[in-house]
Amino acid sequence: MRVTTIIAIYFLFWMLSLFLVLPFGVRTADEAGVSKVPGQADSAPAQFRPWKIVFRTTLVSAAIFFVFYLNYQFGWVTTETLLSITPHPRGE
């Protein structure tokens, strides 16, 4: 696997992980017991910590990519494996 491919796949895993990690640990102003800013949405976080989210996302995406790369190296799940467990239309 080329370095550019590794970077591209890791970036895709990172973006997926961002949306998985983003809702965890978020507390609204009502839950945190702080006053809202005028015009603030009820669901807006009381304290937005982007570096904490980036750190968590990087850890999760690194773990997912590590499993993906091991699968790529050792071939645990292949296209043939996936095709063998999917139902086929009748007559084929």
Rank of each mutant, 00 (worst) to 15 (best):
I9W: 01
W76S: 05
R27L: 09
L20Y: 13
I7K: 12
V21N: 09
A32G: 10
F11G: 07
G75C: 04
L20P: 00
F13H: 01
F19N: 04
S35D: 13
R56D: 04
Y69E: 08
L22V: 13
M1D: 08
T28G: 04
Y69D: 03
I7Q: 05
P87G: 09
F19R: 07
T86C: 12
L22Y: 14
L22H: 10
L82N: 02
R56W: 14
K36E: 14
I85V: 15
P89E: 13
I53Q: 05
F48N: 12
L22R: 07
T4L: 10
S61N: 03
V37M: 15
Q40M: 14
V3H: 09
A29M: 07
V26S: 08
H88M: 15
R27C: 04
E80D: 08
T81A: 12
R90Y: 14
S17L: 03
I7P: 06
I64P: 00
L18W: 14
T57V: 02
R56T: 02
W51F: 09
V67P: 00
T28A: 00
F24K: 10
I53A: 03
F68C: 04
S84V: 04
V21A: 09
S35N: 13
Q73P: 04
T5W: 03
L16Q: 03
P87T: 11
F68S: 03
G91Q: 09
L12G: 06
T79A: 05
I7E: 02
I53C: 01
K36Y: 13
R2E: 09
Y72D: 06
F11E: 00
I64Q: 04
E92S: 15
W76A: 14
T4V: 04
D42I: 01
W51V: 11
A44K: 10
F65Y: 10
P50C: 08
D30N: 06
T58Y: 01
L70W: 08
G75Y: 08
P45H: 05
F68H: 07
G39L: 10
V54S: 08
E31I: 02
V77K: 03
A41S: 11
P50G: 10
T57L: 03
T57Y: 01
S35I: 10
A62D: 03
A63D: 04
W76V: 10
L22W: 10
I64K: 06
D42M: 02
L70F: 12
F65S: 06
M1L: 10
Q47M: 11
F24R: 07
R49T: 14
R49S: 13
A44E: 11
T78L: 02
V26C: 03
V60C: 09
Q47K: 13
H88I: 15
L18V: 07
V67W: 08
T57N: 05
L20V: 12
V3A: 12
F11C: 03
T58G: 06
S43I: 01
G91T: 11
R27I: 05
I6M: 06
L16C: 08
